[in-house]
Each structure stands twice: as structure tokens, then as C-alpha cells.
Design a protein around this nucleic acid. Structure first.
Lengths: 246, 246
DNA sequence: GGAGGACTTTGATTGAAATCAAGTGGGCGC
DNA sequence: GCGCCCACTTGATTTCAATCAAAGTCCTCC
């Protein structure tokens, strides 16, 4: 899974260390980055960009959750990317957004003006090398997601999503809750459905079924606890040679 | 869509110009590449690598078609990548294959030994910049594929696959057939099913339906001709503002 | 505290694709 | 030329998830 790369070199006053751009930069390179950097906050539900909009920044998610989604003519939508803190958004070299980008919670982003950022990439190999690694990770994640969309049952899809969120949550919040795993679902049932290629009713039914069978416990609608992570993993349909989260 | 980037700088005796590594390289950089380069041919049906195998080269597809696929515990498989000539295979920095790579036709690859290639990337920013662009293109393709897998009907999936192949075919074989578009399906019905997250029976039924309705014409099992490309595009479910192939 | 609304659950029914099961047809070796 | 195999087609039936429909729950704002 993706790991935060925490190094001795920080992005100065940045709340998180940017996985994208800071890990291997020298102080003077960072200084250049500082010059084209600014923060921006989006409220929950706000659209950050529509497909086709001009987008003249790239950014690193500092806090909150954003989604990328695509839509067919008749309005069916599929989520194609989930941006959690430390994820990168935007594509150097492209003027237009090619996805709808939406903040599902309040989101703070550390933005870099696109033109100067592209210029910087040209002169600072670290940055494009780091971006390459991150993009390759995203591609791997997208391919796992394709397996989920194409071949998993509704139940397996739900179990998979829960393990994905649990894992990401665990790597982000280094604090652990001991034996059993707990986390808040950062997505509505509808957003989960858009992620999984299901309807929200099916999501609800399958979550209920997993709860009924004791695979997960629900406190409220959104707080999940997993008494036995291996049990949940069994439900994903995956070859689960890769072990526990963290 | 992805374009061949043909420049004045060739990879010497290489049958195709590597999109990945040559486009912007200087002659002396190419010379270094030549030193770690070799050709390899795989026969149709041959497995190039299993998930978990050690893979000590990266490569550019010269001719033929290879697929990347993933499998669940119980054997359900999903294709997650389709490698056509000029596509890049392998991941710098990773020792193991994370997908099953299979040659569906006879495939010739231009391989680069991984270690020295990685070393070269470190010293030659062109290469990682070009790889970043290609990887971003692949990510875009993967996301379009996710929309297909998650939200399209069987009929729309077939129509989409046909337009994808037609487009790729048209960009590769610069020769055109005038008005109506013709091409050979490079995949069996089963491979199409693995691509689309369907069963081979459903693929067969939907291809028959499109033929019955005159959207496509079939000569033999594999040779397709499309009398009206726009008509086919209408069947894909996409917002088809993006125009004709080539 | 109560009304309204967003989000969620649950139920009944339908429908698209999977599954199970025969076929067909063409290419190839003998 | 014959038969065999492989890729493909077609048909009958089943199943899982979508759709249509109605409540239930929680939170916010008066």
C-alpha cells in the first residue's frame, strides 16, 4: 500500500509533507516551490472542477476527501479516483480537468500554480521521478479497482472497500486502536455505490448483511468496527497473501 | 488518444521508435540505451510472466499483443491492461511482476535490462519524464475502463471495445481504408469477455446483435467492418464530443 | 420540542447477464 | 477426405442486482 514518505526535508509550514514534491527536494528547490504555492479550502459537497473546466493548478490534498468521477450521457456516474490526504491531484501538462472533482468532506489542498510547477519539473528531476512513482501506484490501485468492478460480487465489493479504507486510515492515523480495527466511513452510501459500480440500495443491503452476520459492527450509520480483520479479508474474494494493514 | 511520437531521433535498428525512451533522447543517451537492450519474441498463448515472478527487464512492445490480467482466489479473471505495439511494459523499481502477462498473438518486445535501465533513468531526466506522460495516459485509459466496467451495459461494453480497437488500429496503421473502417479483432471472445467483465456467451450474443442490426459487419469470426462509425459511437453510452478516430 | 430534509433501510418486483447445455463451423493433421 | 478440436453460437433457465416504492432515522434549524 501507499506509504507516507516522511523525510527530514519538510515543505516548511505545510501541515503535511507532500508526498509528491518534497520527499527528495533540496532546500533551494523547496524554496522555489514555496513561491508558487498557496492553500485553498473547499467545503463539503463543493465541486472543485467539472470535466472540461480550465484547471490552472495541481495540488496535494492536505485534509479531507475528494473524488474523481466520470459520467455517461444519461447520467450514470462512476467514481474513478478517491483522493485522501497526501494524494496528488491534477496533471502537469494538461489545461483541462478530465474528471469531475468533488469535495465529499471539507477539503484543504496545497496548490501549486500549474505553469511554474511544470517549469520546475523540467529543471528538477526529483519531482517528475516522484510523480512517476506516485502515478504508478495509482495505476496499480486503478487496476485492482478494475478487478473489483469487473468480477466481484456486491458482497465482495463492499468487503473490499472496507479493507481499502481501513488500510488507508491505518496508515494515515499512525495511532492504532489495539486489536480490533475502527474507523469512520468517509463516504455516503451513494458515494460508496459510485465507487463500487452498484446502486445505493444494494450497498445498504450488503452492509446490513455483513453486520447481521457479525463480520462488522456498526455504531450509527458511519462508524465501523471490524472485530476480525482476517474474517473480513476472506469476504473480499482476493488472494489474501498480503497480510494485515500497517 | 495516444499518438505515436515520431521524431528525427530513432532507436537505431529498432523496428519501431520507442515512445518511452527515444522521443527526446540525445544520440549519446541512445547509445547508452543500446547497451542494455535486447529483443525477445514470445509465441501466441505464451505466458510472459506470472504474478510474483521475478522480472528483470522492462520493455517496449514492437509487434503483437499482450495482456495484463489479475485473478481472484476462485479463478475469476479480469484483464487490466492491453499492450499494443509501442506500449511499455514493466515497472522501474519493482522486481516482481504484479500481473499475469500473456502474449495473445506472437509478440516481439524490445527489452531493457532493468537495473541499468533504472540507473539510466536516474541520470537521464528525459526518460522518466516521458514515462510519466505515458503512465498518466495509461491511468486515463484505466479510468475510462473503470467507467465501462462499473456502469455500462453489455451492449455498450462491446461497442466501446470495438471503438477502442478501431481507434488504436487506425493510429497504428496509418494507411486508411477510406470511408468505412475495417479491422481484425486481435482477441478471442474469451479475451474480450475478460476485458469487459462479461462471460464469453454474453460477448457472442451482443456481437451477434450488433451484426443483426447492421451496426457492424462480420467477415468470418474476427474481421469487422464498421459502415458508420458514428452509429457505433452512439452505442457506447459515452458523451461523444470527442470526434472520429485519427 | 417539532418540522423538514438528507441519508438510510427494507420490501416487492423486474430484468440483464450468468450459468448450464447443446449445437455449429472451420482449420488442421493424418 | 475424414475426423477432431477449438473457437464460437444459440437456446433454456436461474440468479443477482437494479428498479420501484415506502418507511425509518438522524440532524439541523426554527
Amino acid at each position: 500500500m501507499q506509504e507516507l514518505e516522511l523525510t527530514h526535508v519538510d515543505c516548511r509550514d505545510c501541515p503535511i509533507r507532500h508526498r509528491a514534491v518534497c520527499a527528495r527536494c533540496e532546500p533551494d528547490e523547496l524554496a522555489q516551490l514555496e513561491e508558487v504555492k498557496y492553500y485553498r479550502t473547499f467545503e463539503a459537497g463543493q465541486t472543485i472542477a467539472w470535466t472540461g473546466d480550465r484547471l490552472d493548478f495541481v495540488a496535494s490534498v492536505v485534509s479531507g476527501i475528494a473524488t474523481l468521477s466520470q459520467t455517461l450521457e444519461d447520467g450514470r456516474t462512476q467514481m474513478v479516483g478517491l483522493l485522501l490526504p497526501s494524494d496528488f491531484m491534477g496533471r502537469p501538462g494538461r489545461e483541462m480537468a478530465t474528471y469531475d472533482v468533488t469535495a465529499t468532506t471539507e477539503v484543504t489542498m496545497c496548490c501549486f500554480r500549474r505553469r511554474p510547477f511544470e517549469e520546475l519539473m523540467r529543471t528538477t528531476p526529483h519531482i517528475s521521478q516522484r510523480l512517476l512513482e506516485m502515478t504508478l501506484d495509482e495505476l496499480d490501485a486503478a487496476r485492482e479497482w478494475m478487478l473489483l468492478l469487473g468480477r466481484k460480487t456486491a458482497r465482495e465489493k463492499i468487503a473490499s472497500l472496507l479493507t481499502i479504507i481501513a488500510r488507508r486510515d491505518a496508515t494515515l492515523n499512525l495511532a492504532k486502536t489495539g486489536g480490533s480495527l475502527e474507523f469512520d466511513l468517509p463516504l455516503t452510501r451513494e458515494a460508496m455505490a459510485d465507487y463500487l459500480g452498484l446502486t445505493l440500495e444494494t450497498v445498504s443491503r450488503q452492509v446490513s448483511a455483513l453486520k447481521r452476520e457479525g463480520v462488522i459492527e456498526l455504531a450509527g450509520k458511519r462508524h465501523i468496527s471490524v472485530p476480525d480483520f482476517d474474517r473480513l479479508m476472506l469476504e473480499t474474494g482476493d488472494d489474501c497473501d498480503g497480510g494485515m494493514p500497517v
